[in-house]
Design a protein around this nucleic acid. Structure first.
Lengths: 198, 198
DNA sequence: ACAATTTTGTACCGATCAGTACAGTATTGA
DNA sequence: TCAATACTGTACTGATCGGTACAAAATTGT
């Protein structure tokens, strides 16, 4: 054990609380007072543990990706199901998160993406968000290329186009959820949006 | 002419400038200093002419709807074209605005919708944005009901579902544009998204 | 010319912003 | 026991936030 007084709060728990505030209010809409209130610590502890607001935000994004961002992709790789069903389950998994009453509405990445264009986000964070979206496109494109080779996606549909379509849908569903859309409406849209598969 | 000193700036022009800043930065990301700088007037004039930040924002939203929001609907009512083509042209009209290099990226209504959920927007403005989205859904639903009666939309597709799908797509395209998507990518997504019509 | 009216410029308000200085309090290894 | 180390609480910083008070400037009708 290192010398010195021990941290009196759980860092991971505090980070999750911070992530939830950013998710609800966005970066410019979240103040340090909001953060310290919900994290249950004071500024000194926050700066000692996380650096500053920007660095805390970046760590919150990481936390979000790990806890709420990556899981949905699992649905795409359950290869015992048809491609269409997997895509449907993927979008449904996302939709359930978007309107989960225990979480802020919508998606933190989508919210942050919207905030990029203004001077709202620090440069470093903006670049991070851009990279994350780029990575999502790459992952989905790679996925659809393999599905096409496996004969599950018609040849005339470009994998990158389908990937972009899916990300666009995710963004749209996230905004709809933010707009008060309920799970029924989202499911309707999802069912309609995948008619063109298979 | 009424007595008193004359306003030395064009009110409508100043409102448009204000609208453009809100479009770029969002409500919490736009300060009064940003506004007075770009509008070329000082605070006294701003408050005399527009009330306060919240009221200026509401007027900017109105300006946006009139100048950049309503025109796209025209494409849906060019009945000499097929429904599919009209929907395509409607989305393309939106996409061209979303990435217009002379305008901020994305859509002001979408941006504001994302900002609703946090405490970012004043109550009054948040309600206004919600009403606008609701009105869009009503207009689109009404449109598709008529198209269905005219035999242009398959019976098993619910008009309100298609309306929700279209609004979701618009939101998604707006976020994609905000994320740096170019017109080519947006067109690809649009072409793919309307395969299921007709 | 002059009173009435309206806009403009400056200087300010209290509140809040992100961030920090520093003393006090634990906890460690020696 | 004691120095070294690390976290915590309080009080503070300068800058900026949205908003306002008030006098100067400009235009009107009389």
């Amino acid at each position: 054990m290192t010398a010195g007084r021990h941290r009196s709060f759980d860092k991971d728990n505090a980070l999750e609380k911070a992530m939830l505030v950013f998710w609800k209010n966005g970066y410019p809409g979240t103040s340090l007072t909001d953060l310290t209130n919900v994290m249950g610590i004071n500024k000194s502890s926050l700066y000692a543990a996380f650096g500053n607001k920007e660095q805390l935000f970046n760590q919150a994004i990481d936390f979000y990706l790990n806890k709420h961002g990556a899981i949905h992709l699992d649905e795409l790789f359950k290869t015992e199901l048809s491609l269409k069903t997997r895509i449907k389950n993927y979008l449904l998994s996302i939709a359930n998160m978007l309107i989960n009453p225990d979480l802020p509405k919508g998606c933190l990445i989508c919210l942050s993406t919207v905030e990029i264009a203004g001077a709202c986000l620090p440069d470093n964070s903006a670049k991070n968000i851009g990279d994350i979206n780029q990575q999502t496109i790459l992952t989905l494109t790679d996925f659809f290329e393999k599905e096409q080779k496996a004969g599950n996606l018609i040849a005339r549909h470009s994998p990158s186009t389908v990937a972009n379509y899916l990300l666009t849908l995710q963004f749209g569903l996230a905004v709809s959820a933010r707009n008060g859309g309920n799970i029924g409406e989202l499911k309707e849209v999802i069912n309609f949006s995948i008619v063109l598969f298979n």
